[in-house]
Design a binder for these strands. Structure first.
Length: 820
DNA sequence: GAGTTTGAAACT
DNA sequence: CAGTTTCAAACTC
């Protein structure tokens, strides 16, 4: 690994010739700034000159750099073909330096470096001929920035590099006032140093310098200016001329910088700080819960990828918010960002975090918790970032409103978004399907966004849904936080994502509590008694959630999951009669007296129609009634029967069928789904549908195939609860397949027994395989088929374009048929 | 706002 | 897994 320090090591073989330099007459900053971009550097130089003159009557030793001398002695400059004018300038600069060298500094500079490319730093040396530590600090800051932007997959690496940077800058800062210990651990040590300077001098104006330099250093690194030997002289001369001109024009007014300038500088610095603080918080958490460091790093990565608003919001939400979200993330070991990044950077499946048990929980909790954090943040009077955040939200909301296609996502991502979308919908007390602000809308990365593409490309099966979920989580935090703060209407317990509970005896630690169920802490506006759903009881909350999760992994999952209404299944389902909104309650309601016409009914409350998973009686759900009720109403309505026909989606199936949409690995989910009854029902349903729509297509639709192909898996444990995604993935592995799953006989028989129509739809090869033997061979072929077809998951088809999806499914059918 | 109704969640 | 109890939201007055 090459690192800049090594250059210095190589270059530092002989310390400073700067001892020979005459006393400083001019600030080294001016020399440094002379290398900045012409336009900006004029201002910078002008101000810096003033600043230094007024604040640093005697040069600060810390700003001397041995590199200046080293480069001359080693002739590195010549290697860069910097011509003599350049050298003269530099010489002049050097002579102005106070070279009261700190011996230890040289030593440290020498010692702190691994190997590196000399040329890499030569440019730097040439460019910032009269370099001082301030510039070094800026370099370090830039390195940190690059690190953040580069997005390290491994947080440890990040930490290590940060430490390196930290060490470097810390050593150089030794002569300065000591920094806040906590902040010294941050990657922003260089800025901390500047901070300390500012504090020491009690001169805010130094921020301006920081601003200028941090902006302009990058400009100055422009190879045309600094690295190109041919242009170097000319531009150098131009710079010098401009600087001279600037100095000539300098007057008192230059000292008084515009307020916005200072403000901007402060903001800039603070922004970096916040960013780094957040990462530090993540890192700290990560240390505590090692398995989550990746996610934190990934979160930071995502932020550095441009989601500054995320950063802003997350950090401004205060520690509790972060802790809440982080702790949840740590418990669930789910790292959407990680998945994306890891899949981007490597194919190592180990990096992929399994979706925790209760994927919905995580989604739920993450999203809600973050937004909750915003509430807490607000309550903590950390409101100074509020306006900007709201602005971001507003802008995003507007964007989403203007972009009706923003819901359009690939089948992979789209379903995930819809998942969160529905979650949000649910939390918003039944926002209509045509709701103006589907948070997800505004939060979805565009279908063609790099992120979306990446997701689609990298997670055909094992990648899972993570990123969209996380994107949702991250972004929904923006949306929901603003909703909570501004949209909460009067008395309703929930509106626009705002939960308010009234719990008296549950301590807000049961699903009775809407806040708890929604994955948010109770807030002041709650009327709960003896509430434990508060940040201070975080451990209790998390433990309780885990308990509930252990009972029902989907307990915290959204209760309503979206259907693709235009899919053949839905089309077949009662002729679309019962699905005004393309969603269904995950579990179905059980209404007896309300007729599903009141908000007692969860389906109705969620603005979704009842479905066959409901056990409601006398359903009159205005959003759609269950087929059972329709049968009661209209006995002639014959598509199905109680004995397992088309309409018979078991509740389990319903939920899982929707979860199917959550992941490209839905097949695996289907494996783990449900008992044999459900499987058989589904099989029958699918078979019939398949036969109806495409007689020979049968089970070959990729999204249906898992159900049909894996009935034996359905009965694996007699449990329909998903325990973990990793387990599901393991099922995909031949080696890990339990024997019971390899035994294809019994469950399949059950399916066949209950599926009179299976002959119509059962793929011949599969049927023959499964029928002729119970060996896993047939199953393997099936699974192989699944694995092959999964990547065919419609990658870029907008979710909303369900028609296209149907067509694609049909095409897949044909393709699969052709393959077989 | 108090009381009632309702159905989900929790418990057995 | 079914029946019962508990609970809090929804609803009514």
């Amino acid at each position: 690994m090459n690192s800049p320090e090594s250059n210095r090591v190589a270059a530092t073989s002989s310390p400073s010739s700067s001892n020979k330099s005459p006393p400083v007459q001019e600030s080294p900053f001016s020399n440094f700034l002379s290398n900045l971009s012409p336009i900006k550097s004029v201002k910078a130089v002008r101000y810096t000159q003033r600043f230094l003159e007024s604040n640093f009557p005697t040069p600060l030793p810390v700003f001397t750099s041995p590199r200046i001398d080293l480069q001359r002695e080693t002739g590195l400059l010549e290697r860069n073909n910097i011509v003599e004018e350049d050298s003269n300038i530099r010489e002049q600069c050097n002579t102005q330096l106070n070279v009261a060298q700190i011996p230890s500094l040289d030593k440290e500079v020498q010692s702190c470096s691994p190997s590196g490319s000399v040329d890499e730093y030569l440019a730097d040396i040439v460019e910032v001929d009269c370099t001082h530590s301030a510039h070094k600090q800026l370099q370090l800051a830039n390195e940190v920035s690059q690190m953040l932007e580069g997005g390290f997959t491994d947080p440890k690496e990040t930490i290590r590099k940060v430490d390196t940077v930290d060490n470097r800058s810390s050593r150089e800062a030794r002569s300065l006032t000591s920094s806040n210990q906590a902040e010294q651990n941050l990657p922003l040590t260089s800025l901390n140093l500047v901070d300390d300077l500012v504090d020491l001098r009690n001169d805010e104006s130094f921020n301006v310098f920081l601003k200028i330099t941090s902006e302009d250093v990058n400009d100055s690194v422009d190879p045309d200016v600094n690295l190109n030997p041919a242009l170097g002289v000319q531009q150098y001369e131009q710079h010098a001329a401009q600087i001279d001109e600037a100095f000539e024009d300098s007057d008192d007014s230059s000292r008084a910088l515009p307020k916005e300038f200072v403000k901007e500088a402060n903001h800039h610095q603070r922004g970096i700080r916040r960013h780094l603080h957040f990462e530090a918080a993540l890192a700290c958490k990560g240390v505590a819960t090692g398995n989550t460091t990746n996610s934190r790093a990934s979160l930071t990565n995502l932020k550095s990828l441009g989601l500054s608003h995320v950063e802003s919001r997350a950090t401004s939400s205060g520690g509790e918010a972060v802790n809440y979200a982080q702790s949840r993330a740590s418990k669930s070991s789910f790292s959407p960002f990680e998945v994306v990044r890891s899949t981007q950077n490597s194919r190592n499946p180990v990096i992929l975090s399994p979706i925790p048990s209760g994927m919905g929980l995580h989604l739920n909790s993450t999203v809600k918790s973050v937004s909750l954090g915003t509430d807490m943040f607000a309550s903590k009077n950390l409101t100074r970032y509020r306006s900007s955040q709201d602005k971001v939200v507003r802008e995003r909301s507007n964007d989403s409103a203007e972009d009706p296609n923003s819901t359009s996502i690939s089948a992979v991502t789209g379903t995930m978004y819809s998942y969160a979308d529905i979650d949000q919908q649910e939390s918003q007390a039944g926002v209509a399907a045509s709701s103006d602000t589907y948070p997800i809308n505004s939060l979805n990365p565009p279908c063609d966004s790099p992120l979306a593409r990446t997701e689609q490309q990298v997670i055909p099966c094992e990648g899972r849904i993570s990123t969209p979920q996380n994107a949702d989580s991250v972004e929904e935090l923006n949306e929901e936080s603003s909703n909570k703060k501004r949209k909460r209407p009067s008395n309703t317990s929930e509106s626009h994502g705002c939960k308010r509970c009234n719990c008296k005896r549950s301590k807000c630690l049961k699903l009775y509590c809407e806040c708890f169920a929604a994955g948010v802490y109770c807030v002041d506006s709650c009327a709960c008694v003896n509430c434990f759903n508060k940040p201070e009881y975080e451990d209790t909350v998390l433990d309780t959630r885990q308990q509930i999760e252990s009972r029902n992994p989907l307990a915290f999952a959204p209760k309503v999951v979206k259907h693709d209404t235009d899919s053949p299944a839905i089309i077949m389902e009662a002729g679309n009669r019962n699905t005004p909104s393309s969603a269904r309650h995950k579990r179905g309601c059980n209404c007896k007296k309300s007729k599903c016409l009141k908000k007692y009914c969860e389906c109705y409350q969620a603005n979704v129609g009842c479905s066959d998973g409901c056990r409601c009686e006398g359903c009159q759900n205005s959003f759609g009634t269950s087929s059972e009720c329709r049968r009661v109403e209209n006995p002639s309505h014959e598509v199905s029967g109680k004995d397992g026909s088309i309409e018979q989606f078991s509740p389990t199936w319903k939920g899982l069928a929707d979860i199917r949409n959550l992941a490209p690995c839905s097949g695996a989910l289907m494996f783990a789904s449900s008992n044999i009854r459900d499987c058989s029902k589904v099989s029958q349903t699918k078979l019939q549908r398949g036969s109806s729509i495409q007689p020979q297509a049968g089970s070959l639709q990729w999204n249906y195939s898992p159900v049909i192909l894996t009935p034996q898996l359905c009965d694996s444990k007699g449990s329909h609860e998903l325990t973990s995604d990793s387990a599901l993935c393991d099922i995909m592995e031949d080696e890990d397949m339990p024997e019971i799953l390899k035994d294809t006989s019994t469950p399949l028989k059950a399916v066949k027994a209950s599926s009179p129509n299976q002959k119509q739809v059962m793929p011949p090869h599969y049927r023959s395989d499964s029928q002729r033997s119970s060996s896993p061979h047939g199953m393997r072929s099936v699974r192989k088929f699944i694995l092959q077809t999964m990547p065919a998951f419609p990658p870029l088809t907008p979710y909303s374009n369900s028609k296209g999806r149907v067509n694609q499914k049909e095409n897949n059918q044909k393709d699969n048929i052709g393959n077989h």
